[in-house]
Nucleic acid binder design. Structure first.
Lengths: 108, 108
DNA sequence: TCTTACATATGTATTTGACTCATAGTCGTT
DNA sequence: AACGACTATGAGTCAAATACATATGTAAGA
């Protein structure tokens, strides 16, 4: 369930801009506790999203510590998140009708 | 979303034994309207499930028309379906918490 | 009789995606 | 100097989904 990483990143970034490492740390909080994404892959993912214009990034010179690249969501990114939410709602619908049907026949 | 085919088949078969063709027709009803599975792949899937002991099948000599192989769920199949349901419930939980968080920030 | 629909298959090929492992740089702290 | 935080790139494996093609046989209807 790493396909779920993309919408999760978008959701986190909508709440406020963050740098990559922080995103990694907070990902399980949104995408499920067992979700661990390979660090390298995540930066790749972020790069990809930036190429698509979904996020934009800049080095944060002000922050202490090692160089951090801070990502923020673009308008296009917000729109993409909306589309994600819509399709996830559909998926949820399918899921819950399945489970309902499952529970109806349980115990026979 | 064809990964969803397996639990759907199991659910349908728990309700009553069916032959393959009928399963194909009724699949969208459970797995979502747009779900179309390649016919050949579905028979392969059924074969696989039978090898795993999840379903059992027999030719139905009595039924009119072309030869039909009727599948029914085994006890092991029922157990597998239960496990599916459990993990789908978890997935549903992740989904709905995601959507809830999404809706909380909507319109900013 | 010819076509169409029903029904069950097998073979193969492509593509995508998940996942892993390895490496390497900078910066700040200890 | 060593370590942890932070950002990256490279390369590769492996299974799964998907698609496409072909085959066989029965029965119903034009």
């Amino acid at each position: 369930m790493e396909r779920f990483a993309e919408p999760s990143l978008l959701l986190l970034l909508r709440e406020r801009p963050m740098h990559g490492y922080e995103l990694i740390e907070r990902l399980p909080e949104v995408a499920g506790a067992e979700t661990r994404v390979d660090v390298g892959n995540l930066y790749r993912l972020l790069r990809g999203l930036e190429e698509e214009g979904v996020v934009s990034s800049a080095w944060s010179a002000d922050l202490p510590g090692p160089a951090k690249r801070t990502y923020e969501l673009t308008d296009e990114g917000r729109a993409l998140l909306d589309r994600w939410a819509e399709s996830l709602r559909e998926a949820q619908g399918v899921l819950s009708s399945f489970l309902e049907r499952y529970e109806q026949g349980e115990g026979r």
